[in-house]
Write a protein that binds this DNA or RNA. Structure first.
Lengths: 199, 199
DNA sequence: TGTTTGGTGGTATGGTTGTACCACAAAAAT
DNA sequence: ATTTTTGTGGTACAACCATACCACCAAACA
């Protein structure tokens, strides 16, 4: 079997074109043609590597969540935080779109999420697994902080984890909608963390 | 001039058909035809009362936000709350979709909001005014509660108002995405309020 | 009574979309 | 050397969309 091109690399190239296109004009406006043009290939090629548009969208969503996960991990590592508070802060601040890439990711991710409510074709459980995991992780970090005496022992870790997730999602969305600047959102998030971790 | 039909009533009827259609299959999938069918009228009529699709969508958004505002007011009145805490709780709990109507409203509203990020035709400031007003209102209520000795005096009212708005939006979204039940969201929201208003 | 005007239906049209189909080149396998 | 197989381009097609256009009816006004 002749294999001249790296399939995965081609697919990634096309998906990135889709993400770029979706970032500027919205996920709803991406078409096979627009993706092809943005990627600098023919429509036939997009068809070749992703049989149908639905599969293309699905693959793009998978890649998107993967890239977002990488960003979180990189940020946590870059923050150099070892204590629960630093880790929590790093994780949650990733939900606030600062640079253009982050803004694009969150916008598209939100579009996918909203779309998945009415379109069952887009993996329903795709949007359930990650937050569930995150919630458990945050609760564990909070509990650890409480045991270390860093966090208010009166807190209900489980509930606070849900609040943290909700507030970061809500703040992120408000920044996306230009209701707030990223700096304001960051300040508020830090303030809220300060209430959980008394100095 | 012969005037057999009430224009506003006809428009409302068509818009409600749009909202019903959008609630079940998503705002992105509403077409002139689908709205006409749902409303039981001809496509020509939809054209007649709303010249273009864009105007139809705009009118529907206006009506949607109006209906949502009414719901908030009705809920506050129904709660019979006179103290800041009761009022705040009533207002924020309206962001949690419980009944089907509320769920539909919030879904469509969110779709509009996300759409407005990339589509400048949909009123940009439409989504800025309401939250801004709400934030000021919540901050004022919090300050009043602090002065009455009901709320923790150590709180930064302005920041807490932003947090409240974000957490209710985030919780509402998570309920919409079926990440959480409405009951869980309600419990968490009440828990969070309990932290601001010590018993 | 005739004529304007508001309300309605049906249909044509120009454009776009996802996808299927056909052809062809070149590398691998035989 | 010939026959697969993989990658690629171009194009055709059926469906659907928003909108423009044409015709008609009945109510109001003259």
């Amino acid at each position: 079997m002749p294999k001249l091109v790296d399939h995965e690399e081609r697919r990634a190239h096309i998906i990135d074109a889709l993400l770029r296109s979706a970032a500027s004009s919205g996920l709803h406006s991406v078409t096979m043609r627009s993706v092809a043009i943005e990627a600098g290939v023919s429509v036939r090629l997009v068809q070749y590597y992703f049989d149908t548009k639905e599969q293309l969208l699905l693959a793009a969503m998978t890649r998107l969540t993967a890239r977002m996960g990488e960003r979180v991990q990189r940020r946590v590592r870059a923050s150099g935080a070892a204590d629960p508070r630093g880790i929590i802060e790093a994780v949650l601040l990733e939900a606030v779109p600062t640079d253009e890439e982050s803004r694009a990711f969150h916008l598209i991710h939100t579009e996918y999420a909203v779309l998945s409510v009415t379109d069952p074709a887009l993996g329903g459980p795709q949007f359930l697994a990650a937050p569930d995991e995150m919630e458990a992780f945050l609760a564990a970090q909070l509990t650890a902080a409480q045991q270390a005496g860093a966090a208010d022992p009166g807190l209900d870790a489980r509930h606070e984890a849900v609040v943290l997730l909700a507030v970061s999602a809500g703040l992120g969305l408000s920044v996306l909608l230009d209701q707030r600047t990223a700096d304001e959102a960051t300040t508020v998030l830090r303030y809220h963390l300060g209430r959980l971790f008394p100095d």
